[in-house]
Simulated scan of single mutants.
Amino acid sequence: MLDVEVGAVAHGGHCVARHEGRVVFVRHALPGERVHAVVTEDHGGSFCRADAVTVLRAAPGRVEPACPWAGPGGCGGCDFQHADHDTQRALKATVVAEQLQHLAGITWTGECEALPGGPLGWRTRLRMAVTDDGRPGLRAHRSHEVLPVGDCPIAVRDALDPVLAREWTPTAEIEIVSDAAGETHATELLEGGRRLEVGSGTAHEHAAGRDWTLPAAAFWQVHPAAADAVVAAAVEGVGELGPDDVVWDLYGGAGLIAAALADRAGLVVDVESDPEATSAAGGNLADLPAARVVRGRVEKVLESLVRSDGSPDVIVADPPRKGLGRELAGRIGALGARRIVHVACDPAALARDVAALAGAGYRLAGLRVFDAFPMTHHMECVAIPERSGAEPVR
Rank of each mutant, 00 (worst) to 15 (best):
R139Y: 08
H144C: 11
A52M: 08
A83K: 06
F47S: 09
A90K: 01
D86Q: 11
M128N: 08
A50F: 08
W122I: 04
W122D: 00
A52Q: 10
P136E: 10
L126I: 12
A58R: 09
W122Q: 01
T124P: 09
G71L: 07
V55E: 10
D79C: 01
L103D: 05
V55N: 09
L56A: 15
V55R: 12
R62T: 13
T54L: 14
G71A: 10
G71T: 11
C67F: 09
T54N: 12
Q99K: 03
G76L: 05
L138T: 07
T131C: 14
L56K: 15
G150W: 13
L100G: 01
Q81C: 03
R49S: 03
V130R: 10
A70S: 02
E98F: 04
A140I: 14
G121W: 09
V55G: 12
G118C: 05
G61M: 11
A114Q: 03
G150K: 12
K92D: 00
C78R: 02
L147Y: 11
L115A: 03
T107G: 04
W69Q: 08
T94V: 04
A104F: 05
L115V: 02
Q88S: 02
R62W: 11
G105V: 01
A83D: 06
A114D: 04
V55F: 14
H102I: 04
D79H: 04
V149K: 06
E113G: 07
D84A: 08
G118M: 06
A129S: 15
L103F: 06
A140K: 11
T54Y: 11
P148Q: 08
L56R: 15
R57W: 12
W108R: 04
R57Y: 12
V130Q: 10
R62H: 10
P60I: 09
R62M: 12
V146H: 12
T54I: 13
V146S: 14
T94G: 02
L120Q: 09
I106H: 01
L91M: 05
A140L: 13
G76Q: 05
V53M: 14
K92V: 04
V96S: 03
L91D: 00
R57Q: 15
G61Y: 09
T124G: 13
G121V: 07
P148C: 11
T87M: 07
C152E: 07
E111N: 08
P153Q: 09
D79P: 01
P119Y: 00
T124S: 14
P68W: 13
D86Y: 06
P68N: 09
M128S: 12
